[in-house]
Write a protein that binds this DNA or RNA. Sequence first.
DNA 1: AATTGCCATATAAAAAAGGTATGGAGGGTT
DNA 2: AACCCTCCATACCTTTTTTATATGGCAATT
Lengths: 296, 296
Amino acid sequence: MNVKQLEYFAAVAEAGSISGAARELHVAQPPISRQLAMLEDELGVTLFLRTNKGVELTEAGRCLYQHSRQMFQSLRAMADSVRDVSAGVRGQLKVGVIYSDVQTATSLLKDYHQKYPQVELYVRMGAPGDLLDDLGRRELHILFLRSQSERSFGLRELVLGEDPLELVMCRETDPAPGQEAVPIQALRDAPLCLLRSDDLWGYSRDLLGECRRAGFTPNVACQCYDTPMEMQMVQAGFGVGFLPRSVVAAHPGSPLYTKPVLGFTTKSYPILVWEEDPYQSGCVKRFLELAGEKKL
Amino acid sequence: MNVKQLEYFAAVAEAGSISGAARELHVAQPPISRQLAMLEDELGVTLFLRTNKGVELTEAGRCLYQHSRQMFQSLRAMADSVRDVSAGVRGQLKVGVIYSDVQTATSLLKDYHQKYPQVELYVRMGAPGDLLDDLGRRELHILFLRSQSERSFGLRELVLGEDPLELVMCRETDPAPGQEAVPIQALRDAPLCLLRSDDLWGYSRDLLGECRRAGFTPNVACQCYDTPMEMQMVQAGFGVGFLPRSVVAAHPGSPLYTKPVLGFTTKSYPILVWEEDPYQSGCVKRFLELAGEKKL
DNA sequence: AATTGCCATATAAAAAAGGTATGGAGGGTT
DNA sequence: AACCCTCCATACCTTTTTTATATGGCAATT
C-alpha cells in the first residue's frame, strides 16, 4: 500500500469517476485505473462499483475513504511536527539551575516559554556538581551556573549578567550598623556563614583571601552546602553571610539585607553552560539565541 | 513522502546504522542512503547525525520515528478494517421490521449479532409501505415483512417460517367459549377488529371471503392501521381480532389468547425482503446467509 | 445507427528505485 | 605511523515501476 495509491483512490472517490480524478490530478486515466486495481488486489477488496457513467464507492470503499482522509491528515501533522521539532518550536528543553540562579533562570525561561510555548520544559535545581554530571550524561541540556564554577572541557558558556558579592545580614548581626558599606575590619569579630570553599563557588575563598590581606583570619561559624541553607543560617543569627546580591534581593519580605564590603569588587557572573555540539537540538539552539539577544 | 521511505527510515533508526538496516532489509546500502537523503530533503530536516560508526537520531528524527510507528499501525488497522467491512464482519446493517414480525426479527438479529458483534445494527419498526419506501431509498438494507405484501420488481425474498392465522380474543369476547376452535358461523354476530384491508396485509381479506362463502357478512367493528393497535382494541373489548398466532403468543402475560377458525388453513409467512443487487454489502450478504442457514 | 463518455488493456516512453564500484573519514590494530 | 576496517556518500549503470498513448468494449443518449 502506497500513499500515492491512497491519493489516487481518494481523488476517484471524490470525483465519482476515474477519468474525472485523472483530469483533477493532471495525469492520464489508465495509470489511475491500474493503481486502483493494484490497491484492490492488495486489499483483496472491491472498492468501487464500475458503472457506465463512473464509479461508486462500496461499503469497503467508504471505509477506506474515511481512513485515508485521516491518514493524509496524520501525514501532514507528522511532517509539521518533525519540522517544528527541528526548528526548536516543539520538543523538550531540560534545564538545571543552581540555587543562586533561580531568579535569572526563571526570568529567562519565562521569556523563552512565551516565545516557544509548545516546548516541554523540565527544570531541576541542584548543586553545580550534580548538574554538571547530568549535563555530561545528556540528561540536561543547559545549566544556569555561576562564573567561578570549574570548567570542563567541551563546555561552552555565556555570561548572562553580573552580580556584586555582598555580605548578608539581619539587623541583629549587622557588623557596621548605620553604614552603607562594611569595612573589611568590621569582619574581624563577626562570625561568618559561608558556602563550602571546596565547593564550586569560589567567592567564599575570595572573601577569606581579602581578610587575610587585611591582616586577620575571620571566624567562620558555619560552612553551608547550599545557598538557601546559608540564608537560613544567617536569618537564624549564626552570623553574616556572603552571597550575590540578587539572591537576597529576590526575597523582598525577608529580614535579611545586604551591604557591600568596602573595597571588595569581585563579582559573581550568572552564566549559561552547555555542551559543545554542532548538532545541538533545535530547542537548545533557540534558547541560546534568545539568551544571547536578551543579554545584549 | 512515501511509505517505503518511512520504512527505510524506521529500519535505520532501529538498526542504528544504514548498512545494518540494509542487511536487515536485504537491499544494498546506497539506496537506503539515497531514500533517507530524499526524505530529509523533503522535510527540510536532519534526521540522523552521521557518525563514523553508524547514525544517531536527532530530536526531529526521534519525533519522526514515533510518528512513523503510529503510521504503520494505522496503515495496518486501515487495511484490516477495510477487509472486515468487505467481509461483512464490520459495518452497518439497517433493518426494517413490521409490527407483527418483531419476534422473528429480534430472534434472528440476536443470532446475527452474536456471530458478527462488530456490525452496527440499526432497527426500525413501521408499516410495510413506509419500510418499502425506505428500502427503495437505500435507507434500509433488509425488511422483515409478511408474505402477502405486494411485490415490487427487483426485490427478493426469503420465507422464514409459517404462522397460522387465528382469531384473537379475551374471555369476554370469546365467540365459542369452551371450544378449541371457532366455527365460522360463530363469527356471524361477533364484532371484528381487523387490519385495514387495503393495507398490505391480505389476510383480513381472506377471512372476509371465508365468511362470505359461509353465507354472511361479518360485523367489522373497527379497522386498524397496525397490529399493536388491533391488539389494544381487542383487549378493550371492541371485538375479536385476526392475527398470526405468534404475535399474540409473544405476550404471555396478556389476557388475550387465540383460537383457530375451523377449516381455515391459510397461513401467514414471515419473510425477509431485500433489493436484488449483485454488489450487496458484506453485512447484508452475511445476514442473508445466516437467515438461510437458520431456516434450514 | 452513430456518437459520446466511461473503464480496461496493451504497448512504448519516462521516471524512479535498486545494484555495483569507489572514495573519504574516523577508529582501532599491528 | 602505516594499515585495515567499517561506515556513509557519490557516481554510474541496470532493473523495475510508473506514466502516457493508442485502442477496444460497453452502455446510454441523440
